[in-house]
């Protein structure tokens, strides 16, 4: 059996030219990894510097002074356990809404061919074109006074989650993914006697693992870093997420850049760990579910 992940198979690799290509790819990827990781690492390491060192000339690559006492200070000022908990809950909801609501929409628009579907899709596409700043305040008004029912949704995650459910980007993404699924595959399954639903659960869902995984990851990291609407809506300390706190800290002229970076470090560590742990599962999902001929 030939092993291959892409163009280059084991057999190809034995040829000299392919070996050169393969190793140049590896070199390029190592450079890419350095560009992606080193700047962040440098900034994070710098967060234990003193403010003086931060601005010193010539600058230090590795910190000279280590101010670890700043960490307990930061933790005594802000309840990070609660911040983490809130943020996780918020992110989980965002992932769920992104996948289910946008996924269903994408599937329906792509494969169900409902009457009016084209109109819906055109509208969604056009909302992606119009700038969102036009409607910020009307959105805010809807949150304070929910249409028809009149609830006030301040300090609740629901409006934020529902905004995730209205992600034109993800709908379009899902739709174009489903569009790429060969129609023949679904037709064949139908001829074999599968109903719409079993086509969906048996064929479409397993095939969509890559896109679901991708959207889930992106939704999670998007939600983790989201600050604007959470900042507008979550005013109560008990529901605030970590980015809301950081945004507030950044606005605060009374806070040194080193303290801010320390808080930032702790805001990045959890998702980073999460990805290190989960990446095997998530990323394996990609390979395993690739359509094999």
């Amino acid at each position: 059996m030939k092993e291959r992940t892409g163009i280059i198979s084991n057999v190809n690799y034995k040829k000299g030219s392919y070996k050169v290509i393969y190793w140049s790819i590896i070199v390029l990827l190592v450079i890419m990894a350095a560009i992606c990781i080193l700047p962040v690492a440098w900034v994070l390491i710098s967060s234990v510097k003193s403010l003086d060192e931060f601005y010193s000339v010539p600058p230090t690559i590795l910190p000279r002074s280590f101010h670890f006492e700043a960490i307990p200070e930061l933790f005594s000022r802000y309840d990070f356990t609660k911040l983490y908990g809130n943020t996780l809950l918020y992110c989980a909801g965002c992932v769920l809404f992104n996948i289910t609501i946008n996924g269903l929409m994408g599937y329906s628009l792509s494969k169900m061919k409902v009457k009016g579907g084209v109109v819906v899709f055109t509208i969604i596409l056009s909302t992606y074109m119009l700038p969102t700043t036009v409607c910020m305040a009307p959105v805010y008004k809807n949150i304070i006074k929910f249409p028809i029912f009149g609830f006030n949704l301040m300090n609740s995650y629901w409006p934020l989650w529902m905004m995730c459910g209205a992600s034109a980007y993800n709908v379009i993404l899902f739709k174009s993914f489903f569009d790429d699924l060969p129609a023949g595959l679904l037709e064949a399954a139908k001829l074999d006697g599968c109903g719409d639903l079993s086509v969906f659960t048996r064929i479409v869902l397993p095939l969509s693992k890559p896109i679901i995984a991708t959207v889930a990851i992106m939704a999670f990291s998007g939600a983790w870093g989201d600050f604007f609407w959470p900042y507008m809506i979550l005013k109560d300390n008990n529901v605030q997420t970590i980015m809301v706190k950081i945004y507030a800290m950044q606005q605060d002229t009374q806070m040194g850049i080193n303290t801010l970076l320390l808080a930032i470090t702790f805001s990045i560590i959890p998702p980073a760990i999460l990805f290190v742990f989960f990446q095997k599962h998530i990323m394996n999902g990609f390979t395993m579910s690739g359509i094999k001929g």
Partner: peptide
Amino acid sequence: MKMKIVKSIALVLVMSMCTCLISACGTSK
């Protein structure tokens, strides 16, 4: 049957949203 499941998924979503809206409303002082 497929209809039922899809319907119920949709229903559960809508219902859960509504209940949460109401509960959010209930907590406002």
